[in-house]
């Protein structure tokens, strides 16, 4: 059986996938599931949980449950747009650096520079340049992922290049481009898929962190990070306010990590 498939069937990955499907499904279907508009203000501020407001209301009397559901959508967007773009850019750069030696040096030093920034510092830098907001989050997540995928691709391809079957392909006359896409990249894919799971977890984390410090998604737009940020101010009056977004962020990060672990296990076991 294929290693990745075996990985997806491991208990860790199954649990992770279940959580991801539930949480992201809820975000995706927010317009249908949310009992209220996430922006509709009422006079009842800081209401405790009730039948109409499952998680209570916030400082403007908005329904917290609905805001959390809509908040998930930001992470959905970051995961579905920024991670793939970063992954593709990184993979392409990684591949290019295996072709020419001089380009390798240039690209690797660029990666060194990007890796030297921790993700939050990178976020601050991006926000300083283009201003805070969702675009800053998207760009940051993309940028952070480029060297991660780049290094991984480069190292995987470099080690695959010495395999007998690659040598065999070369001496039966396979040209470099076909060699890359037919022999090297497909065999490097396993590692990239594992990284993708971990990158999604990182994306949720970065969105949360950037919005929490106020350079990401900004109120009144709901996002898991911005909800957390606002809730801190009212921690003494309404402890539940912070709890819901926190639980969702943790669950998502944990779930993606579990999937990554499960995949790694499946690939390692022979």
């Amino acid at each position: 059986m294929n290693g990745l498939l075996r990985g997806f069937r491991s208990p860790e990955a199954r649990i992770g996938l279940a959580v991801v499907v539930v949480v992201l499904g809820a975000g995706l279907l927010a317009p249908l599931l949310a009992p209220h508009s996430p922006y509709a203000q009422t006079s009842g501020t800081f209401l405790p949980p009730s039948a109409t407001h499952w998680l209570g209301t916030d400082e403007y009397g908005r329904d917290l449950f609905s805001r959390v559901l809509y908040g998930i959508r930001q992470d959905l967007l970051v995961g579905a747009v920024a991670v793939p773009i970063g992954a593709v850019a990184g993979t392409v750069l990684g591949l290019l650096s295996t072709v020419w030696g001089w380009l390798d040096t240039v690209i690797q030093r660029l990666f060194d520079v990007t890796l030297a920034f921790t993700s939050l510092v990178m976020g601050v830098t991006v926000a300083a340049v283009i201003g805070p907001g969702l675009p800053a989050v998207l760009i940051t997540v993309g940028l952070v992922n480029v060297p991660l995928f780049g290094r991984l691709t480069r190292n995987a391809v470099k080690s695959l290049q010495t395999r007998d079957y690659v040598t065999a392909a070369r001496i039966v006359g396979v040209r470099p481009v076909r060699l890359l896409f037919r022999h090297l990249l497909p065999n490097a894919l396993d590692a990239l898929v594992v990284q993708a799971a971990l990158s999604l977890s990182l994306a949720v984390f970065i969105e949360g962190a950037m919005s929490f410090v106020g350079i990401g998604v900004r109120p009144p737009e709901p996002s898991l990070g911005s909800l957390l940020r606002t809730s801190i101010t009212f921690l003494d009056r309404s402890p539940l306010y912070a709890l819901a977004p926190m639980v969702v962020v943790t669950a998502l990060v944990l779930a993606f990590n579990l999937i990554g672990d499960g995949l790694t296990k499946g690939l390692l076991r022979r």
Binding site: D164, Y165, A169, I171, G173, P186, N187
Partner: peptide
């Protein structure tokens, strides 16, 4: 490539000399 169409190689380890994805 022209030369290698006349001279070929058979490796020691048949496990590693075939691409597992093909």
């Amino acid at each position: 490539r022209a030369y290698n169409s006349r001279v070929q190689l058979v490796f020691q380890n048949p496990m590693s000399s075939l691409n597992p994805r093909m």
